[in-house]
Design a protein around this nucleic acid. Structure first.
Lengths: 251, 251
DNA sequence: TTGACATAGTGGTCAGACCAATATACCATC
DNA sequence: GATGGTATATTGGTCTGACCACTATGTCAA
């Protein structure tokens, strides 16, 4: 695009009806108008409400379904999924298994974001929210004692910390990153001794948050997720038998 | 679902043509048959190859487009995106799906992310990348001296820092956040004396990165963006004349 | 060289028809 | 009351064909 000598001009944005519908429908989900478990209006009704053809609407709905936000059932309707389902479809995290640099970037991004969230939670969480973090810790202890998977308790803990940070944008972002890593998190928690270690890390994070010690919360969360990253890296390498590639400094 | 007394039965999996097509097309991308920049076959041809109706294919293609894997251009064709784009769209949902406290959350998220990026750039940027950051600082000095907008130089600086951090996920995320704030950044830079101040802040960040002082880079970036957040908050309040709302502690 | 015009190709949108699956209601039989 | 069968309405799934909107490319005239 040649530069003009006068005033710079900006391209006119193009969009499609499908994309507009997609964005509008997503905002219903993310903003909470449509809650997990809700049944959204039938296609024939929704396309009239939106003033577009049913085909265009289906394109948007199908996209939302394929990324895990919606679940459509013939004869019944279309339902909103839990947030933990978004982006957690096996197909989508096929990427994280094939490009190790990408997986590392995701893990690192998650470490940085969750560290920030832990620090903010220590500063901002209400007493009720701190209790909720504690509940998740106790839930994990109970899960370990009764021999069931700690996956749900793990999710609940991280979510409660993110809630306590009072930043919707970061909370949503880190949730998506977690969802992308869902397979790896699941596999990690199957390793003997890992659940007990995870519990200890969560206890340390919870303790720092309760004491309102932001820096300690950050450090504890970083330590926890760094261990996760190392375990996942090992799993990935065992999976692919590939050589360890230098990560930093492109030169 | 009542349990049977005999042998447990498993549900018969249901699928749709759209989902099958989605899976097959994604595997072309994942496995590298379709590389970034490649133009995939036209819809009318591809639907024949797959043996499905064009509408069903479009649903799959649209989904891939909306998660950032494909880019379709009317009259031209549909192209495979760079890998680094794949997470951009989903992150955008996280960033834009929130309501009234949105701008503040976005600004804070940006501060936290860019702080992290500055710290990482100090550790990881190649000499060439450090030079590029310096170029952006010199570009801004030249823009101020010749009285033109520093918008481009501002963008170039932040982008160069993000590049030096070597984390694609965070780089994408911060680009998206900057885009969301584009209007406010533009208005901020119109305020007298702000460009000179921005230049000083950029110089401090650049200096810290050049010295490889990660902590100083973080602090300098935080200071810079905190000032931005305050200016933008003032602008927002002047715009709306609204009362300042308590931000923290939901109780 | 530039501008105008025509054409072909590609994605975007729509409408309508029909199919497949499910939920629900009702009835008969044991 | 429980089970099975049938009918109906509803919902999502698929297909077809038509047409529109935009872009790339080629040709021709000034």
């Amino acid at each position: 695009m040649p530069s003009t000598t006068a005033r710079a001009v900006t391209p006119i944005p193009r969009t499609t009806l499908t994309e507009s519908a997609f964005e509008q429908l997503i905002s219903y989900v993310v903003k909470g108008s449509w809650k997990p478990g809700d049944r959204i209006p039938p296609e024939r009704e929704l396309c009239q409400q939106l003033g577009i053809a049913r085909t265009s609407l289906r394109e948007a709905l199908k996209a939302m379904e394929l990324v895990g936000m919606l679940d459509s059932r013939v004869g019944d309707g279309t339902f909103v999924c839990a947030r933990s389902e978004f982006l957690s479809r096996p197909l989508l995290w096929a990427f994280t298994g094939t490009d190790h640099a990408e997986l590392r970037d995701i893990m690192e991004a998650r470490m940085l974001l969750e560290q920030d969230l832990a620090g903010l939670a220590a500063e901002r969480a209400t007493p009720g929210e701190v209790d909720k973090i504690g509940d998740a810790v106790r839930m994990m202890r109970a899960s370990i004692d009764s021999g069931v998977s700690i996956l749900d308790a793990d999710m609940a803990f991280h979510l409660a910390v993110a809630e306590g940070a009072h930043n919707e944008v970061l909370r949503n972002a880190v949730q998506l990153l977690r969802n992308l890593m869902r397979q790896w998190i699941y596999l990690k928690l199957l390793i003997p001794d890992v659940p007990a270690q995870v519990l200890r890390r969560h206890e340390a994070i919870y303790g720092a948050i309760r004491r309102r010690d932001s820096e300690a919360a950050r450090k504890a969360m970083w330590k926890h997720l760094n261990e996760t990253a190392m375990l996942v890296t090992q799993m990935v390498e065992q999976n692919s038998g590939s050589k360890k590639k230098p990560r930093r400094s492109k030169e």
